[in-house]
Amino acid sequence: MDASEHRIVEELDAPPTVPRLTGVAGRVIGWLDTLLITLATLALVGIAATVLLQIAGRVVLPSSPPWTEELSRYLFLYMVALSSGVVIRRHRNVNVELFHHWMGPRARAGYQALIGLLTGVFALIVLPYAWQYAANGVWQTSPTLKVPMLYIFFSTVVLFALVLLYSALGLVEGLLAIRRSPSQADTETP
């Protein structure tokens, strides 16, 4: 691949971002990112182990354990919920990048602030309903694991709380980047 093709691939692969928070706030968010990614990875490993146990149970044992499919589903829910905020922070969610490369640093910052605001407002509206949904699980238990469904339904609360938190973070980072002096904004790379 020549230099121009490599540059085009990098522009397509790496979405333009604004500078992240630094200092104590940046370190705390970094630790939270690491914790959430670790928990989501453990959930993914749990899914793989559960599915392998189910396959082995079908092949080797007279019958496969009935709880494996249910556990893998619940682990999947928590994997998605726990990784949702970090996906937003790293700009790895599905989006359409038709005009990002034409934007300057301040326009990218404004765009990130706008997306953070809209996503955060949506999560703020949905969060109380997610809590109501989770509260419905108090009177129910899962069919095979006999786990209170409150713990399973609570994954929606975790999801929307993290989306709200990370959207607010994107909004703050975008607004701070807009306020930077033009000389700072022009010299920074996305």
Rank of each mutant, 00 (worst) to 15 (best):
H100M: 13
T119N: 06
L52C: 12
V163S: 00
R89W: 05
D186Q: 13
L165K: 02
A14V: 07
H91E: 13
L77Y: 15
G85P: 02
I125Q: 06
L53M: 08
T34L: 07
A14L: 11
L77C: 15
M1L: 11
S72L: 13
R90Y: 03
L71H: 00
Q132A: 12
T38N: 09
V121C: 03
Y166Q: 07
R58G: 11
R106N: 00
T68A: 14
S142E: 05
V60D: 06
P16G: 02
M103I: 00
L127A: 08
P128M: 12
P143M: 06
A168D: 05
V24A: 13
P19C: 04
P65N: 08
L176H: 07
P143C: 07
S142T: 14
G30V: 09
A14D: 08
L175W: 05
T22K: 14
R90P: 00
D33V: 04
L53I: 09
T144L: 08
R20N: 10
A130V: 06
R108T: 05
S4A: 13
V45W: 04
S84K: 01
P182K: 11
E173T: 05
W131M: 13
E70D: 12
G26Q: 07
V51D: 00
A3N: 15
A135Y: 08
Q54N: 08
L124W: 12
I8C: 05
A81P: 03
G174Y: 01
L175G: 03
R179G: 14
V24T: 15
V28Q: 06
L171P: 00
R179A: 12
L82Q: 03
E69D: 15
V157I: 08
I115Q: 04
Y74I: 04
E10I: 11
K146D: 12
A123Q: 05
L44N: 00
L169K: 02
I125Y: 13
A48W: 07
L12G: 03
M149T: 09
S72R: 11
L77M: 14
S83H: 02
G57Y: 08
E11D: 10
L42V: 09
R90C: 00
W102C: 04
L175D: 03
R106Q: 03
P62A: 11
Y133H: 10
R7W: 09
Y151F: 13
E173S: 07
M79T: 14
A185W: 06
L114T: 14
L145D: 07
T17H: 11
V24C: 14
V172G: 01
G110N: 12
Y111I: 10
L150E: 04
V60K: 07
R180G: 01
S142M: 08
P62Q: 13
E5F: 08
L44G: 03
L52N: 06
R73G: 13
N93V: 13
G137R: 04
P105A: 14
F99R: 08
W31C: 07
V172T: 10
Q54K: 09
A113P: 01
F153R: 14
L145W: 07
F99W: 14
F76R: 07
V121Q: 00
S4P: 00
V157C: 06
D2M: 12
Y74M: 11
A130K: 02
N136S: 09
E97L: 15
M103G: 00
T17I: 09
L127C: 09
A3I: 07
Y133L: 12
I37G: 01
A168Y: 03
E70F: 02
Y133S: 11
R179Q: 10
